[in-house]
Amino acid sequence: MSAAPATLLRADGLAVGYGGRAVLTGVSFALARGQRIGVLGPNGGGKTTLFRALLGELAPLAGALDLPVRRSVVPQTERSRLDFPVSALDVALMGAVSRLPWWRRPGRADRAAARAALALVGLADRAHDSFGDLSGGQRQRVLVARALVQDAPVVLLDEPFTGLDAASAERLEALLDRLAAEGRGLLVAGHDVEQARRWDRVLCLNGRQVAFGGPDVLTREVLEATYGGDVVPIDCAVHGTDRVVLPPHHHEHAHDA
């Protein structure tokens, strides 16, 4: 990680979309080494579109996008086939393929890297289990291990906490903290406002960039602009009235874009 520059990616006035029509505009933010940015927004608000632009799959329609280092992505686990005949180690090893020309197979060093990544995410003893037999949280961590084998300084995580129980979510969050501490930059898409307050920066999207900054930008006004009017205030002795939770339908996941 030591070779990576201080700023791992930067967007300035970025607009992206499909077929020349922008679905997300005015995005300006930067990701530094060791930073975790929470990306909040409703389904269809542009989170996935932004990720696709950051991965180089969509060209900017306007603005500038500076991508000096390699990125890896941790997709939603629902996208992978559970009946596919692969072990956790097979999936982690897929991360090595990106660094090899097409005629080369992953070798012994790649296998060792895949084992080390599985150990790092706490799944050393499940390496030979079928991917489909693992729990949702374990599958998510296998996909994180795959991104680690890719060894990119930037990791994009597409709603990694979806469907996880509290214990699994806590474990994944600790893992992400550790990756950031090692100097990686993380973009974490999600719906959990309370969790986003614990990240270093938050990026709020709803067809445009609503806000970017430290967790204190998550005011009630910003959240209402991000999620439309669908914000339910809770009057809570600990958090006060400004702290809000979202209605449960935001935790249903049709994939946006």
Partner: peptide, 14 residues
């Protein structure tokens, strides 16, 4: 394996 497992993220794995 990469393509059969998850076609949509295959490009990101080269």
């Amino acid at each position: 394996l990469v393509v059969g497992f998850d076609r949509t993220s295959a490009a990101q794995l080269g």
